[in-house]
């Protein structure tokens, strides 16, 4: 059943999702995964926060992936997020000037993560946001959410997703401005203040 027949009519059934498990930590994270912004770029921002479970305990083993547009709203088409060194077989890191838009960060022992990326530009009718994918042991299917930056109230009010949400739920998607280009964004998987998670159809 695992050679998929693509000759028949209709849609092909998908491969089911499974949890990332507890032991991806030596496989998926890569050096510089959190440093998405090219060094010294004037539009760099820092986003950071905690990932919490249903009892408010931070997750030391969550994996956060970020995918965002450049400051002009363009979607990056540059590879090189996890460049490899052909000499050592190890990681080279990013090349310091190109923006790939992609980052991957494991929460630390305190359940905290951060990323330095470029301030996202607006696309279509949406307010500027960075797309987020959360993985963890115990999470059988990853979760999508978005980090909206709080700077432009007019754009946030007009955003098609945010406009559909009641105020207290909407606020879980808007990062808090901590000054000097730093924004706080916590992810609550369950319970009070549960983050809004998205399903794309």
């Amino acid at each position: 059943m695992t050679r998929i027949d693509t000759t028949g009519p209709g849609r092909v059934p998908p491969t089911p999702s499974h949890t990332v498990g507890p032991f991806y930590g030596y496989a998926l994270p890569f050096p510089g995964g959190e440093d998405i912004a090219p060094a010294g770029h004037p539009d760099a921002v820092t986003v950071h926060g905690y990932v919490y479970d249903g009892e408010g305990a931070p997750l030391p083993d969550a994996l956060v992936e970020l995918w965002g547009p450049d400051p002009e709203g363009g979607t990056p088409s540059m590879d090189g997020s996890l460049r490899r060194d052909p000499a050592s077989g190890g990681f080279l890191g990013r090349n310091g000037v190109e923006f790939t838009g992609f980052g991957r960060i494991q929460t630390d022992a305190n359940g905290h993560w951060y990323a330095r990326t470029l301030r996202p530009g607006a696309r279509g009718r949406s307010a500027p946001y960075v797309s987020v994918c959360v993985f963890a042991r115990g999470l059988l299917v990853h979760l999508y959410t978005r980090i909206y930056l709080p700077d432009d109230a007019t754009a946030l009010a007009a955003d098609p997703l945010l406009a559909r949400l009641p105020a207290e739920r909407r606020d879980t998607l808007v990062a808090a401005d901590e000054g000097r280009g730093t924004y706080r964004f916590d992810i609550r998987l369950q319970g009070e203040g549960e983050t809004v998670f998205l399903e794309f159809q």
Partner: peptide, 13 residues
Amino acid sequence: SLLRHPKRPPVAI
């Protein structure tokens, strides 16, 4: 999975 799954349905886009 007990404490790590959202209780609210996801918002469809």
